[in-house]
Write a protein that binds this DNA or RNA. Structure first.
Lengths: 139, 139
DNA sequence: CCGTATCCTCCTCGATACTG
DNA sequence: CAGTATCGAGGAGGATACGG
């Protein structure tokens, strides 16, 4: 039996792997942090609560959709808390939770590595691109 | 005078911000690490050099395209080195550079935070989703 | 064995318009 | 002020086929 082709078996393996991979804690964390707006929002909240409109102004170029979506995600994950003050007009404040705070050292660590090593990376990149250019493409 | 609309000014701001943001070292690092395959490749190389075909087997579900693309990127950034042995058939080995090695503690730190706090995140998530469900959507 | 080139499909994100 | 709803463009990534 096994009328499955190699392609089919591969496909199954991929799906099983995806399912497993989606559960991986480090992966979930990286997926969160890698989001373009997440670290910016977290950083904007570092010094205390901020209003929605405040965040929207401080974080240049963010659309309403992405800001809301990002905040919702962070709230859902318990990294940020949302406080609604029912007045007219309404007032909404966002703030880091203790869990969110505990993440900040990690952000700092990333920042630190990047600052210490970015020049090496840039240099490597130029070497690499330079080498490519040499090996003649010339059309 | 500025005949620019608010939308136009916003667009300019966004582009300027994008350009600035793209330069940010932490961002570049996060963008690299967040790539689905990067951490897997780095981890697969942790214990020494590996052949291309070896990596392709160890990393379930990766396509040739993505594996090559990932390795090229890492090589370009100086995190991984590529050694070609001209035989028939060819043999290619990949290995972490010292720069690449220096990144591993960071990966470990992420792994560690995730493992320590993932349950809090999951719990928060269930609370959040549960609360949503309560506030009656019932269409 | 180690790739590159092409096509094609999701899926994310921004723009826009509307609501409590 | 603080969102939600909808739509369309663009890019990332997989399948497939071919080259050194």
């Amino acid at each position: 039996m096994t009328t499955r082709t190699a392609a089919e078996r591969r496909e199954e393996a991929r799906q099983a792997f995806d399912a497993y991979f989606a559960q991986c804690p480090s992966r979930r964390l990286l997926d969160r942090l890698s989001d373009k707006w997440v670290t910016l929002v977290l950083t904007a909240l570092r010094d205390g609560p901020r209003r929605y409109s405040d965040l929207s102004r401080r974080i240049a170029g963010v659309s309403q959709k992405m800001l809301t979506q990002t905040l919702r995600g962070l709230e859902r994950d318990g990294l940020v808390s949302r406080t609604l003050t029912p007045a007219v007009p309404v007032r909404v404040d966002y703030e880091l939770t203790p869990l969110g705070e505990s993440l900040m050292p990690l952000v700092a660590a990333i920042k630190s590595w990047a600052e210490r090593h970015i020049e090496e990376v840039e240099a490597a990149r130029e070497r690499y691109d330079g080498a490519r250019a040499d090996e003649g493409f010339s059309d």
